[in-house]
Structure formats: C-alpha cells, structure tokens
C-alpha cells in the first residue's frame, strides 16, 4: 500500500519501466519466423523490475526441444540491456505452458503474411483432425490435405492445396 501523502507532487507521470521493456522485446524476433516477435509469439510470460533496477524476464519454450531457445534468451537479455539495465536475468521454465492460443492476433496476421497458415484457436485441446482441412494461406481454400503433421521446424506441419496446387506449411495448433 502506498500512502498518498508520500507520493511526489507535481511530477509528470512516466511510462512504467515494465512497459518500456515489453516494447523493447517486440523488436526481438523468433529466429525461425524472423518477422514474428517473441511477444507476439507469446513466449514471454513475465517481466519484473525490482526497486534496485534488476530485471527478470520469464520465458516458456514453444516446444521442449526448441533449438532456438538459447539464442532467444540471449537476444532478449541484450534487448533489455540496451535500455540501460545492467542486471538482467532471463529465466526459461515450464511454470506457464506455452500453447498456440498465446500467439496474438497481430502475430497470426504476420504468420499468414509470412506464408504459413496460422494455428486455429482451440479450447485447451486442439482437434488434430482439423489439420486435414487447414485453410490455404495463399488462396484461402479449405480443399487441402495434410501431408505430414511434422515439418522443417518442430512447430510446423506440411500441407497441400488442391485448388491453387501449392504445398504450404502451418504453424501447428498445440
């Protein structure tokens, strides 16, 4: 609880430091989809700034075996350090489980522009049978087939569109 009597008077309100950090993290991209930020991907689960100006950023991986996680930890740390913080800790754990619903609406648009079908939203348990009729990111047709539920990265599946005759990939619902 803050005692209102102790609040400084007449000082212009400044953006809280946590907001500035989130903003900086929007510049850190997923190395496998280099236009999608770690914030839009939904892997940042918390940002804390202590009174002594030390920062903790919490992350959760998309897949347990994601090979890009160490690189992203490093880049996240550097992005915060560029704001002038010297004590920055990036912690990755499973206390918050990533799922594809954590990808922002903006992130879904970016994924589509990148040429991947974005993952459909689900109620906790994705229905994998829907993968068989994933909407084509090029022509929006649902006349498609699943080639394999795996792909060039752990988070993608491979499909084929019978209408525009294109192979395409989907960011898998998890």
């Amino acid at each position: 609880m803050v005692n209102p009597a102790q609040e400084p008077q007449g000082v212009a309100p400044k953006a809280p430091p946590v907001d500035a950090i989130w903003e900086a993290l929007r510049q850190v991209m997923d190395p496998e989809i280099p236009v999608l930020s770690v914030v839009d991907l939904g892997i940042i689960t918390g940002v804390e700034v202590s009174p002594d100006q030390s920062v903790i950023v919490r992350m959760t991986p998309t897949f347990a075996g994601c090979p890009a996680i160490r690189l992203m930890e490093k880049q996240v740390g550097e992005a915060v350090e560029q704001l002038g913080y010297t004590q920055v800790q990036v912690e990755t754990d499973f206390s918050v489980t990533w799922n594809s619903n954590r990808i922002s609406d903006h992130g879904r648009e970016i994924i589509r522009h990148f040429g991947l079908a974005p993952p459909p939203k689900h109620n906790g348990e994705p229905d994998l049978d829907r993968l068989k009729h994933t909407e084509c990111p090029y022509c929006a047709s649902a006349n498609t087939t699943l080639k394999t539920p795996f792909g060039p990265t752990l988070c993608r599946s491979m499909h084929y569109c019978f209408d525009c005759l294109q192979a395409f990939e989907q960011f898998k619902p998890v």
Binding site: F63, A64, G65, P149, F150, G151, P152, L154
Partner: peptide, 10 residues
C-alpha cells in the same frame, strides 16, 4: 521428417 522431428522432441 516425422521420425527426425519426433527424435528432436524426445
């Protein structure tokens, strides 16, 4: 691709 991906998951 499937077996390689499952291997990486594991």
């Amino acid at each position: 691709i499937a077996f390689s991906s499952i291997a990486q998951d594991q």
